[in-house]
């Protein structure tokens, strides 16, 4: 598996956690992985982004400047990173938050109203996991078994009661689309 993933959105949308789930799953599946957050003042209420690399060989730069996949959970993120995506790459947009369309024609775009889907199913605040489910469906970045294990291990012991809801949100994402 080789995937350079960039996740971006508002602080508080669970961007960093989503990245951690992907990295953890990849690691459990035997791949090389790296996870690098943006840090600094932008953490405080502004935009948050996170670079995740999953690779079958040692990872060079952990900073993803040309993502294969972009997960955009707000408009500024889409505007900032749309042009960075490699030709033939994929953008998954949370269309309940972003009302603009992707302009590029050389990439594949999925519009998923993740925030609304989460809320409709009593999973408010779990749009990130809905997005993760869809990301898994599209890229199969690891085996399903390791993916579930990755989610489980990424949730801190103190919040273990949230596992079920996380899994439910992932399922919504995985079952979305065609």
């Amino acid at each position: 598996m080789n995937m350079n993933l960039l996740l971006a959105g508002f602080g508080g949308q669970g961007i960093l956690f989503t990245g951690k789930v992907v990295a953890y799953s990849g690691m459990l599946d035997g791949d090389e992985v790296s996870w690098l957050p943006s840090y600094g003042p932008e953490m405080r209420g502004g935009t948050a982004n996170c670079s995740v690399c999953v690779s079958d060989s040692p990872i060079g730069s952990p900073l993803v400047t040309a993502p294969d996949v972009l997960i955009a959970m707000n408009l500024p993120s889409l505007q900032k990173f749309e042009n960075a995506v490699v030709p033939g790459g994929l953008i998954i947009v949370d269309s309940s938050i972003v009302d603009e369309k992707v302009k590029r024609k050389d990439i594949r775009t999925i519009y998923l109203p993740a925030t609304r889907l989460a809320a409709d199913n009593g999973l408010k605040g779990m749009a990130n996991m809905v997005m993760t489910g869809r990301l898994y469906k599209e890229t199969k970045f690891c085996s399903e078994e390791k993916f579930i294990e990755g989610v489980t291990k990424s949730i801190p012991a103190k919040k273990a009661d949230l596992l079920e809801k996380n899994m439910a949100a992932i399922k919504i994402g995985m079952e979305s689309g065609e």
Binding site: K20, A23, M27, E32, V33, S34, W35, L36, P37, Y39, I59, P62, L63
Partner: peptide
């Protein structure tokens, strides 16, 4: 540096 300090790896 800030990259190595902030990044997660196995």
């Amino acid at each position: 540096d800030g990259i190595l300090g902030q990044m997660m790896e196995p």
